[in-house]
């Protein structure tokens, strides 16, 4: 279980100091599918970076199963990330000099995962094992980054606008992959988006507004992307 306690984060100094997160508290259950919604600039990415251990809050704590990760040293946070989390970003951030296989292996090696190739198959890239990112379409690149994140068998998967750079149909496909894989491998999903349709696929929806949580609700019946039909 993930527990955030009164997270505060500001950027800038002096006059231009600006509070991005104004005290956020939140509980997330294991194997939940959480979507964080909010307008641009409301602090979604900042919050995601903090609860995933990429960034430190100014004050407040983040607990994973009772362990406070904000109290860890840099090396300890790194090894925490190694053990627990996976990331998928809007811009993919694949290593351009490495093939699909090697990119996925980057994640797999961290978990000593020897059969990561099944995950490449699962995202439908079995044929493109030795292609380089520049030889793939945007949707294929995003699938590589999904495979890379899942190959390290994360307990929590963080996604920052994973479909932002994709067309609707590809975006839908990607999300359905992720949901299917969640059933198979059991992990928590925390996804940031602008897209209200994606929120219909979630178990829990968190709405953010200028650095605060404005609403939390749970979807009784979760839908697949195709059922929503966007």
């Amino acid at each position: 279980m993930i527990k955030a306690e009164d997270i505060i984060k500001s950027y800038g100094n002096g006059e231009s100091r600006f509070q991005v997160l104004k005290g956020i508290s939140l509980d997330i259950e294991d194997n939940d599918f959480v979507v964080i919604l909010g307008a641009s600039g409301s602090g979604k990415s900042t919050f995601l970076n903090i609860i995933s251990g990429l960034e430190r809050p100014d004050s407040g704590k983040v607990f994973y199963d009772g362990k406070d990760i904000t109290a860890l040293s840099d090396n300890e946070v790194t090894s925490f990330r190694k053990e627990n989390v996976g990331f998928i970003f809007q811009q993919y951030y694949l290593l351009p000099n490495m093939s699909v296989d090697q990119n996925v292996k980057m994640g797999a090696d961290l978990a000593d995962n020897k059969d990561y190739k099944t995950i490449i198959e699962a995202v439908g890239l079995g044929e493109k094992l030795h292609k380089y990112p520049s030889e793939l379409s945007g949707g294929e690149q995003q699938r590589v980054s999904i495979a890379r994140a899942l190959a390290k068998r994360p307990k929590v998967l963080f996604l920052d606008e994973p479909t932002g750079a994709l067309d609707e149909q590809t975006g839908r496909q990607i999300l359905d992959y992720i949901c299917k894989l969640q059933k198979e491998y059991d992990f928590t999903i925390i996804l940031v988006t602008h897209n209200l349709n994606i929120a219909k696929m979630a178990d829990t929806v968190i709405k953010m507004n200028s650095g605060k949580i404005s609403e939390i609700y749970t979807n009784e019946t979760k839908k697949t992307a195709y059922e929503i039909g966007w």
Binding site: N75, K82, E83, G107
Partner: peptide, 9 residues
Amino acid sequence: MMRVFGYSQ
């Protein structure tokens, strides 16, 4: 990117 994924220094 390696640091994000948890590779040590």
